[in-house]
Simulated assay, not measured.
Amino acid sequence: MRAIRDGLELDAEQREFVELAREFARREIRPRAREVDDADHESPLDLWSRAAKLGLTSFMLPAEHGGGGVSSLVTQVLVTEELCHGDIGIGNLLTSNGFFAGPVEALGTPEQRERWLAPLCTEDPPLTALAVTEPGVGSDAASLTTRAVRDGSGYVLTGQKTWISNAPYARWIVVFATVDPALGSRGVTAFVVERDTPGLRIGRALPKMGQRAIVSAEVFLDGVRVEADQRLGEEGQGFYGLMRTFDASRILIAAACTGLSRAALDAAVDYAKQREQFGKPIIQHQAVAFRLADMAARTDASHLLAMRAARLYDQGDPATEEASIAKLTASENAMWCTWAALQTHGGWGYSREFLLEKWMRDAKLEEIEEGTSDIQRLIISRSLAR
């Protein structure tokens, strides 16, 4: 395994979590990657349970609620990278409760944080979900059509969400809706919806190209009533909470992509050392050696950009542009590195005997979710124009 040197000196807590994630990825995650991919519509809940007992599903959650208390996004980047070096789909599943927790932490009252975060920090935590995307609304979250209408002491939610990760398993879902479409982003409001609430229906599992460890589905809200204490923050504050969550999640996606790129590079180097063509290992052929060098350079760039954005985020500095740069670069590098690894393996790379074709399918999602590559370019270009 090739280590990435970034000059960062890890403290004891960081080393503990990183080593724990690395060993779990090696021992538990990688051996299950093909099986989970073939299962298609089934999350590996046994792996979820084992990871939870080790604290790997809650290390990022507040210590006052029983979590690992790792608020540092730098540390979260390092742990995510190790888990996703084992398998990006499974790694993203194991850290998925962090996405639900983001808006709860950013907007919730102390009572709400205890109510919904403490259960996630037990040895038997539920899965949760975040519902933003709609059939006609992807990255433009200010244009949500799901409505939240005042009704006495609470609200009634009506609308449809799609591609919601963990929806078939989630006990709680943070639903983003608008109290007034005319207000745009200033109308977006977040609510925590219980799974068994009347009017909430989970649709069929959606067939996916890759990252099948996380099962996605549509969510239908037909007159779902929630009380005022299920609203996170004030009316119209949901967009702020969502954008803050996106800054962190895009940085963590960059970390996940770095783990995948590292896996592809490791596989390509190992194969190139063993495979002979024209009387010598193919790693000695210039074309292959240069491709491996490009993979190493792209993998390092992905890691370093994720770490830069994470440091800014941890300091409380604006990091939206840097998060977009990290996600854009790392996701496209992961796509390229998985292609390059498959190319290095030649015809064998096309076989399902190796994980390369799976990794290439997995990589594609990261160019799409949490804002496509084009959206990231738009965010960056707007920053440049200011």
Rank of each mutant, 00 (worst) to 15 (best):
L130R: 14
E227M: 10
A296Y: 09
R382E: 13
A310I: 04
Q237N: 01
M60G: 09
W163G: 00
V104T: 05
Q230G: 03
R186A: 15
N333T: 08
D362G: 03
P103Y: 05
S58A: 15
A340C: 08
S72E: 14
G346K: 11
G66E: 05
L107Y: 01
I4W: 02
H85Q: 15
R115T: 09
R5I: 09
P31L: 14
K53T: 07
V188T: 12
Y169R: 12
T178D: 07
I282L: 10
V219N: 01
G102H: 15
T189R: 00
L305C: 04
R291A: 14
V104K: 04
D317I: 00
L78R: 15
G199P: 02
E276Y: 07
I379G: 11
E42S: 09
V132Q: 05
A21N: 11
G184P: 11
G102I: 06
E16P: 00
F99P: 00
G347S: 15
L260H: 02
G279Y: 02
A330H: 06
S72K: 14
P110V: 06
T245M: 15
E105K: 13
A341V: 07
T146W: 08
S43H: 11
S153N: 05
M295F: 04
E123L: 13
F354M: 05
A170F: 01
R15G: 12
D46N: 10
T146Y: 08
V224W: 00
D40A: 15
P168M: 01
A12R: 00
T95D: 00
I282T: 03
M295S: 05
P281Q: 09
I29S: 10
M307G: 08
E9H: 12
I283C: 04
A287M: 05
E35L: 10
A217I: 04
A131D: 00
S72H: 11
R225V: 11
A263W: 07
L265A: 05
S43N: 05
F290V: 12
D374K: 13
P168K: 10
S302Q: 10
E134T: 08
K273C: 12
I375E: 14
M307C: 11
D247S: 12
W116L: 04
D151I: 07
I164T: 15
V224R: 04
C257A: 12
L94F: 07
A267F: 15
A268P: 01
E35I: 09
C257E: 11
S302Y: 06
D294I: 02
S331V: 02
L328N: 09
E366R: 14
R26G: 00
R275M: 14
H41W: 10
T57F: 09
R15D: 03
L378K: 08
L130K: 14
T128Q: 04
A272M: 02
G67S: 04
A267V: 10
R291M: 13
A63H: 13
L384G: 08
G349C: 05
E13M: 06
P110D: 01
G279S: 03
T338H: 07
V224A: 06
R386S: 13
V79S: 08
G86H: 07
P103F: 10
R186W: 08
G152H: 14
A167T: 06
R204Q: 15
F220I: 11
A255S: 11
G346I: 04
R250A: 03
G138K: 13
T372L: 03
N92E: 06
A248C: 10
D270M: 13
V288W: 00
L305Q: 08
A228W: 12
L365F: 15
E353V: 12
A3K: 11
R32Q: 15
V224M: 06
I283K: 02
V193D: 01
P125R: 12
